[in-house]
Design a protein around this nucleic acid. Sequence first.
DNA 1: CAATGTGAACAGCTTCACAGCC
DNA 2: GGCTGTGAAGCTGTTCACATTG
Lengths: 204, 204
Amino acid sequence: MKYRKIPEETVRRLPMYLRAFSLLRTEDIQTISSRQLAERLGLNSPQIRKDLSYFGAFGTRGVGYPVESSARRIREILKLNTPQKAALVGAGRLGTALVAYPGFSLFGLEIAAVFDNNPKKVGRKIGPVKIEDARRISTLRKRTIRLAILAVPADAAQSAAKTLAGAGVKGILNLTPCHLQGNRRVKVIDVDLASQLGILPYYM
Amino acid sequence: MKYRKIPEETVRRLPMYLRAFSLLRTEDIQTISSRQLAERLGLNSPQIRKDLSYFGAFGTRGVGYPVESSARRIREILKLNTPQKAALVGAGRLGTALVAYPGFSLFGLEIAAVFDNNPKKVGRKIGPVKIEDARRISTLRKRTIRLAILAVPADAAQSAAKTLAGAGVKGILNLTPCHLQGNRRVKVIDVDLASQLGILPYYM
DNA sequence: CAATGTGAACAGCTTCACAGCC
DNA sequence: GGCTGTGAAGCTGTTCACATTG
């Protein structure tokens, strides 16, 4: 396929594919067709073929997609082939839950630093990670941590985001219901749990 | 505007608008233009005008949108004008964090029941809510709880979803990284935090 | 023959430009 | 004059149909 801009939606689905391929590997399945994969993921098969084809030929005609090498290639595309460290800002209940969340490891993601501005929390440990004072966010640059999860109260979100941008962070998973004023160099993904739940009654 | 099917994307944005209008009300602002609102939310103004116009005229030309009545109308559209109860399935760290999450109340959402299949947890309280045995999920129908948050381990997701559907639940916020085999009567919204974080390195 | 890879058709969403109203 | 409401245009993403390949 000649080069075309990769749709954002395709990128959003890549982690799903990566997870599926990783799982298939543990099931000792070496090859899977787009149709079978589609069934597992609740998509349709042309979608999967097109998505993967944006990155060149993954599969073998007549056979399907090789599980192991496909996983490897998606990991490379997403830059998850080397372990990625993330910082958590906000050691509240939600943040604390995420530090222990087992789902990140499949993607080689690890929460390697936790910050909070409550002096009572600073110094405590969440699992193996010590809570640091929020003023130390600026040390992220030296520590080569470029990802952050923002889980602070709404009124602290904007200023924390600014601090993170200043510390060289390149991507923020924003769990606050606030729109973070744009820093063009930082990619922000918003996840607003209350809004998501709030949509459901509409469909009843 | 003559009737047209309302885009799913529009519905997804309604909670954002509702939150913004609710917030404006606390700031004693009575009216806001689509441009000002767009700035706050990080959207552009035609988007907002079109979204709201799907539901009929909200605003006043030359003036803007009336904060209070717009909030009320969106609440009606989303069926959030009467308080909605939700059940949480899975009293792990993430689930526990959500019970205490203050963000739901703005939408009139309340977690009114918690289930877990770990006998050690059953009977304990999370805040004001007692953890019940997962076998009691079937009581949701009588209790008129039609929403659920699914926060169980991956291997328990599918069966829990089936039980919820059997208990008359109409909407599930699925926090597990699993595709729930379709029950056509249940609307499922998937939120996969690990995947969201996994996308970020791609953009670095 | 089975399944990928892909141009082309299609559908859905966003943006534009401006008519309509206050 | 200012701002909404909206058809139309433009764009993005999905689905189709099939040529292509092992």
